[in-house]
Each structure stands twice: as C-alpha cells, then as structure tokens.
Design a protein around this nucleic acid. Structure first.
Lengths: 340, 340
DNA sequence: GTGAAAGCGCTAACAC
DNA sequence: GTGTTAGCGCTTTCAC
C-alpha cells in the first residue's frame, strides 16, 4: 500500500505549494486552467480524498449525528433508525450509533463519549431505566455544552428540546373507540411497557375511551406487567376466566401472546375476539390471522427528527424555539378485527 | 453556553503553557503534584474533554468502525449489529453505520465517503445487488487504500479478507436430515433468497441431504422465488396440489407463509407437517405453533467480526493472513416439528 | 518542573 | 496566478 495522497504530497510532486493544490482542487478562479487540469488529473489518478478529520478539525463540525437507541431489535426503533439514516445521508451527514440497551448508565456513557467533538448533535430515544429513574441531568449537561438534542418517541419532560412524538394517547383512544364501535364490551388491555411514558399514555387513552362510552373500567381486564413471563401467566389466567370480546395490546409481545392463547383456547379471531395491537414490523402482516395495528409511521419519525436536528445545526439562530412535532398514527385494518 | 474548555483555555487560566496542561492531565511524572492537582480540579470543574477530532488527526486513527448493512429491518442484521456495537464499545471503538438497502451504488458511495479518514476499518455484509452483479472492485480499492475490511454472512469470494460466516451448507444439510429422520418424504424447500450466496448454499445443503438419503429431488417441491408476491402464489399452488409432510424454509418470509397456508388449509403442524425455518428474531418463539429454527448465533457473528477487525487494526503485522471464521448454527427445537 | 516548537491535513486571509 | 502564514486542538520531543 502506497502512501495516501495528501495536499502536501501532491504539492511536492508538482513543486508547487499546498495552497495552490487546495485551490486547484476546489476550482478556485485564482488558479490557471493548465495547473488546475494537471493537478486534478493527478489527484483523480491517485484517488485523492480530502481527509475529513482534518476538515472537521478546521471547521469545528463533523457532519455527524449521534443516534442513541434503547434497542435495535425492536422493529420500531430499527425503522426510525433507517429513516434517520436515509435523511442524514441525503443531507450529507453520517450517523454514529449507540445502543443504550435500556440502561441509564450506558446511555450517559455513550453520549458523554461522543460529545467530545465526534458528533454535532444527538437524536435520542430515552432508555427505560432513565425514564423510571427520572434522570435528565446528563441531557441538560450535554445541551449546555452546546450540543443540540432531538428526542423522539420516549421523550423527557424535563428537557426543553426538539421532540418528535406519536399521539399515543389519542391513537389509543381511537383504537379503543373503534373496538367499542364493533360492539365489544369486555375489552382487555394488555401491556408490558406501562413503565414507559408512551406505554402509560396508551393506557390512559384506553381508560378515557371507556369512560366516554360509559363502560366501567374493570380492573380484572387490565394486565400491566413488565416481566414477560409473569405477564404471560396473568394473561393466561385472564383469558381462561373471562370471556373477552376484544383485546387491545399496547406492544408486540402483548398482541402476539393474546393471539397465541386465543388459538390454544380455540377462540376464533375475529369472530369471537377482536384484536388490535401497537406494532410496526413486517410481522403483523405475516401473523395468522394478520393483525390490525396502530401503525406509528416509524420511518417518518426518524426523518423528521433528522430534519429538525440538521436544520438546527445549520441555523445560526441563538434564540431558536424548540418545537414538538406530533406524527399521526394510523389504524391499519387487517384480519384480526371484524368489519364495521 | 460558555466557551468549551480546551488545553489552551486552561493554560491561559493558570498562566502556564499548553504542554504543561496536557502533561498534567495525562498524569505525566514531569509535572509537580501541586500543579497537577489544581489543573485537574479545574478541568473537572469545567468538564474538560479532550477533542477527539484533534486527537484523531494527530494519531492518524479514529477508533471508529464503519458498519455496512444491507437492511437493518432484518432481525438477523439487527442482531449482528448489536453484537458489533457491544464488542466495539468494550474495546473503545465507535460504530458508524451505513445501510446499503441492498443497492450496489449506495454501498459503494457510503463506503467511499467513510473511507476518508472517518473510519479505521469496515465490517460489511454485501448488498444483494452487489452479489448478483458480482461487483468487488470497490472493496479491492478500499483495501488497497489501506483500510481493512471484515465481511460477514454475505461475503465476496473475490476478496481476500477476514470473514465470519455461518455454515449454511452444513446446517441446511443437517436440518433436512433431521426432517428425514422424522419420517418425512415429501419435503418442500422454500426460499426467497436464492440469489444470495448464503441462500443458495442452503439450497445445496438440502439437495445433498436428499441425495445421501436416496430421496429423489422433486422439482415441484422446490420454490425459489425472489419476488414475495409471486412466491406466495407459487407456494399456495404447491400446498394445494401436494400433500407435503415437511417444509424447509430458507428465510423468515418463507417459513411464516408456509405456516399461514397450512393454517388456512387446515393442515396440522406438526402432526401432518413438520416445519423448520432459518430465523433469528424473537418471532419464531411467538408464532403459534412456535417455529423450530436454524439459529445463526447472530450476536456472536457480530462480536467475532468486530474482534477480527480490531485485532487487525491493533496489529502492526504487514503479512497478516486473512482468516475465515465459521460460526456453528444450532437447531432450536420448538413446536413446529414432531419429537423424534 | 516547565515551556517552546513542530506537526497531523486542511482552509483561508493575506501577501507578492 | 501562486505562495506564505496562521490556526483548528492535541501530542510529543527536546530544550531550558
């Protein structure tokens, strides 16, 4: 492997100065056509690429976004991520990724590590542990150091920054409402994520829909349980002891488990039981029957978050007012609910 | 927001030189305890963090790995990715991510873009288009420029670099063998990924297992079709016209579709039909019945790839011999196959 | 025990 | 039309 082409090396080659080469390559009118041509040809031949680290150091910006995600195996986050990546590439930004694995400490460490000139700004979805501990100082510190943050989905109330969220409350309300319209009266609500801001909002939406339709909230039909094994047991009990006519599942585990138990107990979906679940992956379509879902437009969330961040990075405005963008969900009707 | 702490700023504060500060902070024995203490205290107070870009420029390395993945929504890649990220963090590396979206051009562009000092090395799983076009020059160019590449899963024969692969051929052979042991004679093989190196190897493994067991290869039981809609139609035809006793699915789409059609045609799994599929996500467990899978140990693949790359980056050895590591798969017995 | 200086690769203001 | 210079923030060698 030969020495990498640099301005210096090229300058030496032609016996000119470094700045001449730099200007020639950036097509400056100061340089004669002849010089430009020979230098550019040589550079192309040598496959010269300006060292972006040096450029970054000079410019005091890296054109890189740090994305902190709780769990890349969750298809929602994977989809948001691909939206971010797409928009970033479009705008000439790189994406550097950290996975907090729902741990507060890891979230903090990764962010501190990256906040040392490596990235220009962050896009974050807050780790579960961070939310339950109500931690937010690390975010504040980072923003005080001059690094902007955009949060999505799981956001921190205590932080005043750009946010992209889903209308969890309203969409849960609408979905429940829809189940009621289908004639369902015994609607179970199932969740393994009630400790998350978004999870709890969804539950509240369910509660409100019941109230507005004068249905009593029966605690026995409510399973909010983080531990999936315990959840499965509780769900099994619920489904053996109650003849439900609908299930509203607030996450993917809950919806698939509900369908599994229905199958085992020979309860027909959707004839005897309507099922709606929050879901984003390709799996809701593949299930048998396919699942009616509240879809969160995950890629759009990612694109919007990237856009907000990049706009902020490119604006010189000191008094930029943070905004919160709400992305509307959509009820995707499939086979697990009856027709109206 | 106040000016960010730098060596220069701290030096000014105490009326000492930049190098004194630098040495004090790196605990050099040249500096007196008193000076060290006061400088360190001040630095901590100011939340000083060395600018990593400057350090990178100086060191001519970035401690960053570029990971190029065809599709982050595929749980296999998501899992490999999390393995890479984990190992990288452990070893003090950052991960910068590009998604090729199965496109040759995007793969090439992203890699060229990152190969300008931004990253020290690549971990790549080759895009589908790159494989079908048999492109490899862009990889060669990058390696010639001195940037090491580690490939995983979908590797390029033409490139002599470190590789981490799955024993696709053998595991498909074993899985088919297992179906035969269960007494299956009419074993369909289903794949939407036969254009991928790994996909085709799996098919070959199936073929060999049939041969060794003196079963004829019935072309009618073979559905290799990239387009998922066309695939679904062909599969439906197959399952209506043949009484299969087993299905070997080479990807997730194929396995779930087989189960869907079995359900619709009231074919009992596993009593009448044994199903084995290649799968990595959490979904094989959630399906009803849960799916017996060939599991690829995706996180280990990622960790191994990261390890190989980082070892290479840290070694000075010019005559490093590229190695190919094979990760063994495992047959995970669940409810979609009968007991032996 | 501390400081000066060079240099990583690049840009840009300012000579000539 | 081309070159000189300073500087981005840091490390490191060498001098005092």
């Amino acid at each position: 492997m030969k020495a990498k082409a640099t301005l210096k090396q090229i300058a030496l080659e032609f016996g000119v100065s470094i700045s001449t080469v730099s200007k020639a390559l950036s097509d400056s009118p100061e340089i004669s056509e002849a010089t430009k041509i020979k230098i550019r040809e040589y550079a192309a031949l040598q496959n010269y690429k300006p060292n972006s680290i040096a450029k970054n150091l000079k410019n005091q910006r890296t054109n890189t976004i740090g994305v902190i995600i709780p769990n890349i195996l969750n298809p929602f986050f994977a989809k948001v991520f691909s939206g971010i990546e797409k928009k970033a590439l479009e705008k000439g930004y790189n994406v550097i990724t950290g996975i907090s694995n729902e741990s507060f400490l890891k979230e903090k460490e990764i962010m501190d590590m990256l906040n040392s000139g490596t990235i220009d700004g962050f896009i974050v979805s807050v780790a579960e542990e961070t939310q339950s501990l109500k931690e937010s100082k690390h975010f504040k510190d980072i923003m005080n150091s001059g690094t902007p943050i955009v949060m999505f989905d799981r956001v921190s109330e205590a932080i005043n920054c750009d946010k992209v969220i889903v209308d969890d409350f309203d969409s849960a309300f609408d979905a429940t409402q829809y189940l009621i319209k289908l004639g369902s009266k015994k609607i179970a609500v199932l969740s393994t994520i009630d400790n998350l801001s978004v999870g709890h909002l969804r539950y509240e939406g369910y509660v409100k829909a019941l109230k507005e339709n004068n249905l009593v909230l029966n605690e026995e039909l409510v399973v909010l349980e983080k531990d999936t094994e315990v959840f499965d047991n509780k769900l099994q009990d619920l489904m053996s002891n109650h003849k439900l006519d609908a299930v509203f599942a607030l996450d993917e585990h809950a919806s698939t488990m509900a369908m599994k138990f229905a199958y085992k107990n020979e309860i027909k979906i959707p004839e005897e039981l309507n099922v709606i679940g929050f879901a984003d992956g390709v799996w809701s379509k593949r299930l048998t029957p396919s699942l009616t879902t509240v879809s969160q437009h995950a890629p759009e969330i990612g694109e919007k978050a990237a856009e907000l961040l990049i706009d902020k990075l490119n604006s010189k405005d000191e008094f930029y007012q943070p905004q919160t963008v709400e992305i509307k969900t959509e009820l995707r009707h499939r086979e697990s609910t009856r027709k109206l």
